[in-house]
Write a protein that binds this DNA or RNA. Sequence first.
DNA 1: GCCAACGTTGGC
DNA 2: GCCAACGTTGGC
Length: 152
Amino acid sequence: MNYWLIKSEPNVFSIKDFQTEKQTIWDGVRNYQARNFLQQMKLEDQAFFYHSNIKDPAIVGIGRIIATNSIDLTQFDPDSQYYDPKSTQQNPRWRTVKLEFVTEFTHSITLTILKQKFTVEELILVKKGNRLSVMPILHHVAARILELAREI
DNA sequence: GCCAACGTTGGC
DNA sequence: GCCAACGTTGGC
């Protein structure tokens, strides 16, 4: 079982929304590196849920992968903001996964804390200017994040 | 709201 | 294939 981190702007989709809706399709990813990581996700992998683009960005909870490597249908929808006119049904560009809500941390782990606890090599998230919205998390880093979620 | 960092686009 | 211009992300 592997760990990932996915970013979401809480104004758009928050951990509370996730909890309420129980499941969500992680569509709209339009970055090749992030797409490739989405494709590598396996059933039962877990994803740390990160709130970005707010005053105190933080890891706020966890989701679990319940469907892998699905076609992202929004790429074919001209009315979607994620519409990609260059993608074809024969050769779809963009993939997605389905996630199930697992937990919201009682104490979220802020970016400030993450920067104190982890190096850029351990956790690319803490690198200045990093914009990757889907990334793998090393096992030992995941274990320490889970500890932090209990300790704080 | 600013702007650094980065990815993408398109002219050449 | 290079790279300037542009658009977006996201921390601050």
